[in-house]
């Protein structure tokens, strides 16, 4: 797979380390009364869709940036690549 890095252009996926679903960016806030189940669901449960999937890729053998890659898990087609910061901004704007 070739990942179109927003700054560095086309890079081979083997330069990256895969972390998983981009939902992991949104860690629940912990207070005294936070239900354990909220953290269990955050840490252990996944939507794991067959189709469009927003996921975290870390450019370890490159500029060490964290990217969010939107990819179709049924055919590996990469639909969008953006910096994590930009993804969070547009996610919160929704």
């Amino acid at each position: 797979m070739i990942i179109q890095h927003p700054d560095l252009g086309p890079r081979d996926s083997s330069e990256f380390v895969y972390k998983g679903d981009a939902e992991l960016l949104f860690r629940p806030k912990r207070t005294e009364n936070t239900d354990q189940k909220i953290f269990h669901d955050y840490l252990y449960l996944r939507n794991n869709p067959a189709g469009k999937h927003c996921e975290l890729w870390y450019h370890e053998y490159g500029d060490r940036s964290w990217l969010v890659v939107t990819r179709d898990t049924t055919n590996h087609e990469i639909l969008k690549v953006e910096h994590v910061e930009d993804y969070i901004k547009s996610y919160k704007a929704k």
Binding site: G20, D21, Y44, L45, R46, N47, N48
Partner: peptide, 18 residues
């Protein structure tokens, strides 16, 4: 392999990635 896909039809999220 397709557990998440099938069980989502019953509204269940699983501790699984495919």
């Amino acid at each position: 392999g397709s557990s998440s896909k099938l069980m989502s039809k019953a509204g269940i999220r699983l501790p699984i990635e495919s």
